[in-house]
């Protein structure tokens, strides 16, 4: 196999693993999935920053 084709194949396999396995299975956007709006996300972070029980 020529070097160019080998590299394209490697790129394709890597991008597939990264975006369709790693990202999809293991890396959800935590704040996007747990909350429905930016207002809820802000409220959560403000609560986190001002939690006196820490």
């Amino acid at each position: 196999m020529k070097i160019g084709k080998k590299l394209w194949l490697l790129i394709a396999i890597k991008l597939f693993i990264l975006f369709f396995i790693v990202k999809w299975l293991f890396f959800p956007d935590v704040l996007q999935t747990r909350f429905n709006s930016d207002a809820e996300r802000s409220a959560y972070i403000l609560k986190h920053l001002t939690n006196k029980e820490r």
Binding site: I3, L7, W8, L10, I11, K14, L15, L18, V22, K23, F26, F27, P28, D29, V30, L31, Q32, R41, S42, I45, H48
Partner: peptide, 26 residues
């Protein structure tokens, strides 16, 4: 060779920002 293999390895850090460092990202 270096470019092709290194390509998108940095994108994983952006995945981590959203998952492990979501407070920071916000």
């Amino acid at each position: 060779i270096n470019f092709a293999i290194g390509l998108a390895t940095g994108i994983i850090m952006e995945f981590e920002f959203g998952t492990n460092w979501s407070n920071y990202s916000w």
